[in-house]
């Protein structure tokens, strides 16, 4: 069995994000870059499948700047077998999905696992788009994955608005990981040492014959409208009075 997982390079979720002075991006100085937390969950799940199956291979893919090598090394240090970096600039979700399709066609994995969204653009699109372009079934926002004994299908429990939905997808299939699928492991020191020697293939997006012209263009960026801080009340009585007579919501 072969599993392909994604590892987008994003700012650490604890970073302070501010729009830059020209309003066309974020202030990057001082930002620590990490694997998108949802992709980390995807990698962990792939490793757990591998450990359960014994004979599986885990390939981790990143599409973006050449610095994303760091994130691929993190995936390798966690336990992935090899990595593929597709370098390119100004790629929107549609372009990323088309590139991912090319890699999937080349690698023929049984399962592709992506994070449900990247915490930078918060789009939540690439997995679903990739599944459609491949003509594969999808199971999005999953919190449990069970692969059938004959490896022909997977039962996936999804986090949906009113509760939990379980669907069965024939393999190959694309799955997107939600928060509670697992707790990703930390890379061990031997893992980090080993990762340095694992294969990392680099491909230029332009060489894949994919039209990556953006279909969504960011014209400008602005900070959110500020919410004015209110005041501290001294007691429950004062709070109730404020809600009644000032805010008039009780």
């Amino acid at each position: 069995m072969k599993i392909l997982v994604t590892a987008k390079r994003v700012p650490d979720p604890e970073s302070t994000i501010k729009v830059n002075s020209s309003g066309d991006g974020i202030e990057e100085a001082g930002i620590k870059w990490v694997v998108n937390p949802f992709d980390e969950i995807a990698i962990e799940e792939a490793l757990r499948v591998k450990e359960a199956q014994g004979d599986a291979e885990v390939v981790v893919v990143s599409i973006g700047p050449s610095e994303a090598q760091e994130q691929l090394r993190t995936g390798l240090a966690m336990g992935a077998d090899r990595a593929i970096l597709v370098t390119g600039e100004n790629l929107d979700t549609s372009a990323v999905a088309k590139i991912l399709v090319k890699i999937v066609e080349k690698e023929s994995p049984d399962i592709v696992i992506t994070g449900k969204q990247a915490i930078d653009d918060d789009s939540n699109e690439v997995g679903q788009m990739t599944a459609q372009l491949l003509g594969w079934p999808q199971a999005t926002f999953i919190s449990e994955l069970k692969i059938a004994d004959d490896k022909s299908s997977a039962e996936c429990t999804r986090e949906v608005d009113g509760g939990m939905e379980t669907i069965s997808v024939p393999l190959p299939a694309l799955i997107t990981a939600d928060l509670r699928l697992n707790e990703p492991r930390y890379a061990s020191l031997p893992g980090i040492m080993k990762a340095r020697k694992k294969p990392l293939e680099q491909i230029e997006a332009a060489s894949l014959g994919v039209d990556t012209t953006p279909k969504i263009v960011i014209k400008s960026m602005a900070p959110p409208p500020a919410r004015e801080a209110g005041r501290i009340v001294e007691s429950v009585d004062e709070l109730v009075t404020a809600l009644q007579s000032e805010a008039k919501v009780l």
């Binding site: 700012p11 979720p13 994000i17 501010k18 729009v19 974020i26 915490i119 930078d120 653009d121 918060d122 953006p214 279909k215 969504i216 263009v217 960011i218 014209k219 400008s220 960026m221 602005a222 900070p223 959110p224």
Partner: peptide, 20 residues
């Protein structure tokens, strides 16, 4: 016809144009 959407957990609001 441009649209607003939040990014980076709502730290940024982008004005975007859909070209297709």
């Amino acid at each position: 016809g441009t649209l607003q959407r939040p990014m980076w957990a709502g730290n940024v609001f982008a004005t975007v144009e859909l070209s297709a």
